[in-house]
Design a protein around this nucleic acid. Structure first.
Lengths: 258, 258
DNA sequence: GCTTGACCCTCACGCCACGTCAGGGGCCAA
DNA sequence: TTGGCCCCTGACGTGGCGTGAGGGTCAAGC
């Protein structure tokens, strides 16, 4: 937690500090993208402070989705970063469009493959597992039965078809996956990736169950940490995830409020 | 344009009919995913009607983003297609979230890298090339000067910064890329991919320049075909694209109207 | 029957950013 | 000196094909 590290570092130390693997550093060395400025007598790579600066630039560019070749060009020439960023944005936006079309296609396939009657309890249970049994539902009723959110939830979910429920389940899984991906990539709880996951989380609840404003969203985040059953659900996906989710929700809300 | 093809087909014929490459068919054969039921004396692959049916299933699954391994499983076992579709949807949705976060990150980088003064004419010209000179602008003024769309465009674009303009350029490029990708993939003008591109096109204009309803959007589509300069711009990206864009816009509008 | 040209065959390497062994050596404390 | 942890350099694997190289096959026209 302190940066009182001696200046020349070994691969392992550098790897840990930048949350990359040793293999990645070897790879960058092979490509000539980041060659440590010294070697020890024994042949160990020895990274200077300047090497670390360069690496941090590389890591940032990588997070922006640049290829290693592009990064090398950016680091070498006085090329225009802004122009590269625009090209990159266009690429990513184009990919976004393709993916959105893909989701539409999948949804169409799903609709074609499924019947449209409202879902039975058995189907719900199969979809959501132990989390969706009668006891769970009765408790929710007792706990929130007189809140507007619960009323809204009851009226909206009553008409959902099996297709809707499986879509909802898929969305929920995707939201969880996004949180886990951000968390395990080492991104901070207020990083774009984490805030994006929080945004998706709120949008999911808002669209499928009940109106969620920033205030209520923060409350949910706190509950995920405070209520051991919610905490256990998240921590089962990745230890420490519940706290991360709460922090990401708060970061998202802060960011929106600006 | 007729399907009066003899039933046993060679790789080249099959490849053309399904818009895949010969190498792809070889690859599927290598994997055992699609082994043609016969060979000629000379060793040529010979695809029967049943082989073609199987291939069409494979192609559809590929468009839905399944891996070849998953497709093999789906074709082999009586596995649940619906479950696979949900998993696939969750994956794609997760990727969507990641990409959205990436766009945010890039935008932040761009904002950090650029100043915020309004853009100069020289900058606009550099960005948009020949399409943005004084003559062009005067003509536009004469042609549309008294329409509400043009008034709105003037008032909104006046405050755009260089960062805004480069983002707009990137978006426009992305929209074009989406049209070209859909067009060249062989997808019909009313396919999800093409309609998604049309949606992005309308959203782009709507957000950046002036309010575009379905009616106005259709009008623009017709103009892209009718006005030779617009048609030339699109056809330069890919011959026949102008007509495709118009048809995609109409398909999108029809779909929305349902 | 022979030539021609379009089509087909089977290897086999290349791509991208590493992951994952395997086999061997260095470093440091007890 | 021993042990345990770290480091080194190859070298192959991943997915879904693209792209040759080097050579055989087929149908049509002469």
């Amino acid at each position: 937690m302190t940066d009182a590290m001696p200046s020349p570092l070994t691969v392992g130390q550098v790897a840990e500090q930048f949350a990359v693997t040793v293999r990645t550093l070897h790879h960058y060395d092979d490509l000539g993208l980041l060659t440590p400025s010294e070697r020890t007598r024994g042949g160990y790579r020895s990274y200077s402070r300047a090497d670390l600066d360069r690496l941090s630039t590389i890591v940032v560019y990588r997070r922006l989705g640049f290829s290693l070749e592009q990064i090398a060009a950016l680091l070498a020439g006085p090329d225009d970063l802004i122009e590269h960023l625009h090209r990159q944005r266009a690429n990513v936006t184009s990919q976004l469009g393709q993916l959105r079309a893909l989701v539409t296609a999948i949804d169409n396939a799903l609709e074609a493959a499924m019947s449209k009657r409202p879902a039975t309890r058995a189907e719900l249970q199969e979809l959501f597992g132990d989390g969706f049994d009668e006891a769970h539902e009765r408790e929710a009723e007792e706990r929130w039965g007189d809140t507007p959110a619960w009323t809204q939830t009851r009226s909206r979910t009553a008409s959902y078809t099996p297709a809707d429920w499986t879509a909802i389940r898929a969305e929920a899984d995707a939201v969880h996956a996004a949180f886990v991906a951000a968390y395990q990539s080492g991104a901070a709880a207020d990083s774009p990736a984490a805030r994006e996951a929080a945004r998706a989380h709120r949008a999911h609840l808002h669209e499928r169950f009940y109106d969620v404003d920033a205030q209520l969203h923060r409350g949910l985040g706190e509950m995920y940490v405070a209520d051991p059953r919610f905490a256990a659900t998240y921590d089962a996906l990745a230890p420490g995830l519940a706290v991360y989710v709460r922090d990401a929700i708060n970061a998202h809300a802060d960011h929106q409020g600006e």
